[in-house]
Structures are given as structure tokens and as C-alpha cells.
Design a binder for these strands. Sequence first.
DNA 1: GTGAAAGCGCTAACAC
DNA 2: GTGTTAGCGCTTTCAC
Lengths: 347, 347
Amino acid sequence: MLPTHIITLKQIAHDLKLSTSTISKALRNSPEISAITKEKITAYAKKLNFRHNPTARALKTGSSKTIGVVLSTIENPFFAEVINGIESAAHENGYNICITQSHGSSKMEKTSITQLIRYSVDGLLISLAAETTDTGYLQSMQNAGLPLVFFDRVAPQINTHKVVADNFAGAYQATLHLLNSGCKRIAFMSSALNTSVALERKAGYLQALADKGLAINESLIRYCNQDGESNKEIDEVVNELLLLNEVPDAIFTATDNISTKVFQCLHRKGIRIPQEIALFGFTNSDLVELTAPTLSSIHQPGFDMGKKAAEMLIALIVNGAKDITFQTLVLPVKVYARGSSRCIGCA
Amino acid sequence: MLPTHIITLKQIAHDLKLSTSTISKALRNSPEISAITKEKITAYAKKLNFRHNPTARALKTGSSKTIGVVLSTIENPFFAEVINGIESAAHENGYNICITQSHGSSKMEKTSITQLIRYSVDGLLISLAAETTDTGYLQSMQNAGLPLVFFDRVAPQINTHKVVADNFAGAYQATLHLLNSGCKRIAFMSSALNTSVALERKAGYLQALADKGLAINESLIRYCNQDGESNKEIDEVVNELLLLNEVPDAIFTATDNISTKVFQCLHRKGIRIPQEIALFGFTNSDLVELTAPTLSSIHQPGFDMGKKAAEMLIALIVNGAKDITFQTLVLPVKVYARGSSRCIGCA
DNA sequence: GTGAAAGCGCTAACAC
DNA sequence: GTGTTAGCGCTTTCAC
């Protein structure tokens, strides 16, 4: 019903007194068509500014030249960066992207994915919701031939390409830094443990403690099941920590969201950082270098992650997944020790 | 080529020994179909978990139940909020959204819009790129029947629904606050003046000066043509201001991006805020209450803006634009006077 | 080298 | 009330 004079193959065929199939083939540079008619057709199509109708093409071919993206929320600056990386790689290769948000809900995640499939996306780029445990339906889709690449929050049980940050190293270094600064009771706050990310970051945290000969204190290890989506959840967890007999002298916050929220929470409570509680977190917000104190943080290469993941996905789409050894790409993180982690012993 | 057993109308028709048109009508609850067969069909469809193929439907009907969104970049937290508002209203009404970014480029903006049209989106929600001046093609599209709603950066020359923040009031109050704090030479930094937003905010700034009897100093009024996308641009403008004979004692930054970037820039230069230069900006980042000093800012209702704009667009899509008086919805902003604006005289 | 015809999954006249 | 038919714009055998 829209732009009244949308050009179709049929139109061109009519004008040029050729058949639609000839036009179709010519415009896709098929060797079946003679150079001379090809020339004529492309020239005319260009003049009319013809563009293929992607809907018709998708219906016919089952491929839409579109990549579906599923992540928790674009309000997280890290994911915003990732999307720009994805967008960059996609556009370079003639793909569009369709972004959907799960907002941390497995249900919405599944709905989104199902929707994307129905729109015949050519492949999916997924960072799982923190609460997601069942990925059976994704496995079925992969089995049915859907190209799939995970980034950030990957599904360990699904065998495909994955792009992640070096979560272990980031967490290890953050914790080590806190320890070197003199902290003894370092709390760990992360989203639920069912994500690879949370597991790896916890492992890094534990390893650092172990390397320094500190015992693990389970009461200092806390989970925000909604990944700190609600301030209430953050508040509760922080309150619990503050009511311990042995109040922590530092918190290592393992996700972007939890990091800034905990910072805000402590600030609201008037707790001095780092004097009373030191802080080290994961975040991609560039404002943390302006906060008081500046927030020590692990920075993930969001743009690169998105770009690499998209490139891997496109390779899967184009070449297929036959005879492929799936790989997990681990990207280095950057460690910024700033004011919030009370750097005593180190630079 | 995907999920091997996608259910189609044809499949159901075959199984139930009915025609596809009967199935189609029944599933859309057409009065043509008897209650009894409807019942049978819906039950069976539900059992098979049938979903309409949106691509086929879009091709047939020319409507995709999708809303196209065009904005500069989702890395701006304000736009991330807007998107969530849009998403909320869209999903409530059975629409999907397709987000595209112009990254401030008119060229990419046009490409995005053209693409969205080809995907037969039912309507467009647009916040123009700062550099965009030519909206002729959008006007043609609207004339051809495309429902269009602008938000934030609206096109004054196009007559349609618009949703904006009260930019004038926000800028006025920010400037007034700086004046009341004792600032005399308040610089104004915004994106290029061809946006409604920039114009309104400048007007608010000028009005406040006028109301306080201050003369306009053109050398204090500066534009970042890329809306401060590059740190370089910000740096240059700030440097120019610092080299003036009369160095400003305050800067009112009129966009989200410019606000945080100028803050960072001054911080890097070691300029004390607000002692040397006070700051008041527009931003939706919730981290500004943790910065040192805390950043005084105008907060726009991003979520509401998105939600309202989407609702207005959907109304246009559903009811058509005939006999409609287009309206411009102006949403109130919140003014947060914080540390960066050197509040002397006021609370 | 070009064209006719079928069909992707759906909707909508129009029959019956 | 239900079915037949045509067609959205495109691709793809398969004839010629």
C-alpha cells in the first residue's frame, strides 16, 4: 500500500519485453544470460533504482539476509557496544540485524528466538539470559540447521562457535588487586551461577584467594538471581553482607549491572569507598573514571566481541557447519585499577 | 530450510480435510466460519503450536506488524530508554520493532529508512540525525501513506505526530540555575542548530539570559556538528572556549553525549568543576549522581517518550491519518541541580 | 540464451 | 459456511 511506484521484476520485464525469470537471473548475474541483455537489464534497473523485495525473496528462499540478535538489555552499555560490533560486521557483509531483548527472562528469550526464526533469520547471535537453564529448544534448532553463535553468556552444553571475554583472568586480576591492596574479606556478587560468565568469574575469584592462601568464605559469596535488574535485589544482598559478623572489606562485583548498582547502593548508604568497603567490578561505562571514587573495573572488548561473533556466524551461514570444528574465542579484557579498590601496595 | 516441521495452513487444511482459506479465516476468527469448525481448527492449530508465517503474511498484505525505529545510536542511554518504551508499547499491541542506527549520518539514516520500507514496516518512529536537513524523501513517503511519528529530534517541516521533551523549559531552568549560582559567562554547547531540539534548548538558554538582563555573547555559543561523536571535536570546542579573552565560568551542554564528553574533557584537563567552570547538562545516565562532582543535569523521560510515540504511531497505523489533527506531545523534564553547577544562592 | 510455469505461505474475491 | 482461485514478488526447474 506504500510508495506507489515500487519497482518489481515484473515491471522491468514488462518494460523491456522480457520475462521475469530473465530479469531475475540477469540481476543476479547468472551465466545463463547473455552479456548484452544483462547489460541492458542492469542499466534499466539502475535507472529505476530497483531493489529486490526482501520479503518476497525471504519467502521464496527461506533466507532473509538478516541476523537475529538476542541479549538481555541494550541499556547495558556493554551490550550497546556489542551491537555496534555486530552491526559493523553485518553491514560489511550485506546482512541486516534484528535486535531483541530478553530483559533477563528465559520466557521472553524463547519468545524472541521463536519470533526471529519465523522471520527466517539466517542465523542467531545469542547472549543468554542469566536465569536460562533449558537450552533444549536451541539445540533442536541447531540440529535442524540453524547457524548459532554465542557471545558473552554462552551455553556450555551447546557445541558451536562462541566468543567470550577472558572472564577468569579479569576476575582473577580484580580479586588479586583487592588482596594486594590489603583486603581480607572480599565478597563476591554475581548473577545466578548458571551462566558460563558467572562460573568463570567465580573461578577467577576463588583462584586468586587460593593463590594468596585465603580460605573460601561461603557467606561472602552472593548471587543476584535477576542480575541486579531490581535495585531491591541489590539492596537486599548488600544488606545481608553488611549484617554479617564479619563484614566484608571489599566487594568484587561480577557483572556490569551489579557493579554500578552496588556502587550506587553503597553510596546511598553513606558507606565510604574504599575506606570501609573497597570495590572492583566489571563495567563498560566510561563514566566510571569520573565517579568519586573512580571505579576500578574490568573492561570487556564489546565492539570486538560483537564483530567477531557476527563474522563467525556469517561464515557459518555462508559455508555451512559441515566438517567444522567449533571454536571458542577468548578476548582479553582490560583491567583498570582505580580509586575504589584502595590501592595501597601497588601503583 | 529450517525447523523441519514448520506447520502451515496447508498442513492443517490437509489434516483436517478442509481448505486453506477456511483455516485462514477460522484462525483469524472470521464470522464467515461456523463456531464448530472454528473450534476444531483452533484446537488443532494450538495442539500443533501453529504460528502464522510473518513473511508470507507481509508479502500478501503489505503489512509486517513491525515498527521501524531510526535513531542516532543506542550507546546513548537516553535512546536505550526510549527503545524500551517503544518496545513496551509495541509488544502490548502485537507489533515487533526493528531498530536501526544512523550514527549521526544523514546518509545512513536514509539508507536505514529505505531498507525499513522495503521490509514493509507498518510505520516509522524517527529521531533525526543532527546533521540532517533534507527530509524531502520522508515527506514523499508520508504522502504515499507511510505513518510517521517523530520523537526527540523532530522535523519541523513535516506535519505529523511528535513527542518531545520540554527542551525549552529544561534549558531555561538549567541556565537560570547557573545564573542564580553566580555564573556570568555561561557558554552554550550543542549539536548543529538544524535540529528542533538544539533550537529549543538554545531558546531556553537565551531566554534565561534575557530574563536576568544578560547580553548574549555569541563567542560563547558553540556547535559540535557531529554532536560530539568524536572526542576530538569536543576537545577543539572546549579549547576554543578556554582561549577566549573572557573564559566562560560555566557551560550548559545541550545534549547527552556532549554533556558527558565535556565533563570528561574538563576532567582530563584538570579544570576544577564547578570552581573554575560550572556545568549543567542534559543526560539520562544514572551514574552522574556518583561523579565528582555530581553532574547537574536535565533528565528526559526516555521510556515515556518511546512509549507515547509508539502508541501514537500504532494509532496512526490502525486508524489511518485521515481527518486527524497531528499533535506535538511535550513531556516534562526533571531538573537535577547537583554539585557541578555551584549552587550558591539556592538550595 | 530465454521463457513458461510452479510455488514459497498466506489472504481475499468470488463461487457455490 | 466452505471451497476455488488468483496473486503478493521472487526464484527455480525445465522446456524450447
